[in-house]
Amino acid sequence: MFSTLQVITTVVLGVMVGVEFAVPAFINPMVNSLPEDAGQLARAFGGRRGGKVMPFWYFGSLGLVTIWAVAGWDRDGTGLVVASGVLLIVSVIMSIALLVPINNRTKNWTPENRPADWKEQMRRWDRWHHGRIAVIVASFACLVAALV
């Protein structure tokens, strides 16, 4: 049963890291190359979709890591699992404090109602997102290291 928990937790967190990495590596470059206002509309759509899904994914991953840490408290690698959880907490704090406020503004923008500095706000979100990716990659690395 414990092995199943480890596999599920690793897969859930690993897929989340992959999705978050895909945003700046693949999705945003494609979206930014769209003609005229299509890129901004696509990012607004992504903000609405991500705003619905990602909270469950982040908190779900944190919950799974917490269960792993508690259930495996007397096992080797628990310190790494705890470190993974702490890093996930940092990523959630970053999300709530830095990324969500920008996302909440941008997700309903259209070419008619977006502010003059909309591109700068998108770049700011991108910079914070890069930092969050670094944190969740480190979290995932700790989790994988705990397996070995």
Rank of each mutant, 00 (worst) to 15 (best):
Q121I: 12
V15G: 04
E20A: 07
I93D: 07
G18K: 05
V12L: 09
A146E: 06
V92Q: 05
V31T: 11
A44M: 00
G79Y: 03
K119E: 13
D37N: 15
N113S: 07
D126P: 04
A71C: 10
S84Y: 10
W125P: 00
W57R: 07
D76S: 14
K119M: 13
A69P: 02
G39F: 08
V144Q: 10
V81C: 02
V53P: 00
G60V: 09
V31H: 10
G79V: 06
E120Q: 09
R49C: 10
L80R: 06
R43T: 03
H130Q: 12
N103Q: 15
M16P: 03
G79S: 09
V137T: 03
P29I: 14
I93K: 11
G77D: 05
V31Q: 12
M94P: 06
F140T: 02
V12P: 07
V135P: 06
T4H: 08
L13N: 14
W118P: 02
N32W: 04
L147Q: 15
L34K: 10
L62S: 11
A69V: 06
G18D: 00
I136R: 01
S95K: 12
W68N: 01
N104D: 07
L64E: 05
W73I: 13
H129E: 02
V81D: 00
I136L: 10
M94W: 03
V148D: 12
A134P: 12
A38Q: 12
T10I: 14
I96P: 07
V7D: 10
I96E: 11
F21Q: 14
V65Y: 03
R75H: 09
T10H: 14
W57P: 04
V135Q: 08
L99Y: 02
M94G: 06
P115A: 15
F56T: 01
D126G: 08
I89N: 05
V86M: 08
S3Y: 06
G51R: 02
A138T: 08
I133W: 01
F26V: 13
L34Q: 14
F140S: 02
L5M: 03
N103M: 03
F2C: 08
W109K: 04
V7S: 13
V82R: 00
V12R: 07
I136V: 15
L62R: 01
D74M: 11
N108I: 07
T66Y: 12
N104E: 06
G47R: 00
L64S: 03
H129K: 11
V144S: 12
S95M: 14
G39S: 06
C142N: 01
G63W: 08
V65W: 04
S33V: 00
G79K: 10
I136S: 04
V137D: 01
M16T: 04
G50V: 06
A145C: 13
R75S: 09
F26Y: 13
P35I: 10
L98H: 11
V65G: 00
T110Y: 11
R105P: 04
D37Y: 14
I133D: 08
W68R: 02
A38E: 10
L87F: 14
A97V: 04
L143H: 06
S3C: 09
R49L: 09
G47E: 00
P55I: 03
Q121M: 15
A42Q: 07
K119A: 15
V15C: 05
L5E: 09
V100H: 09
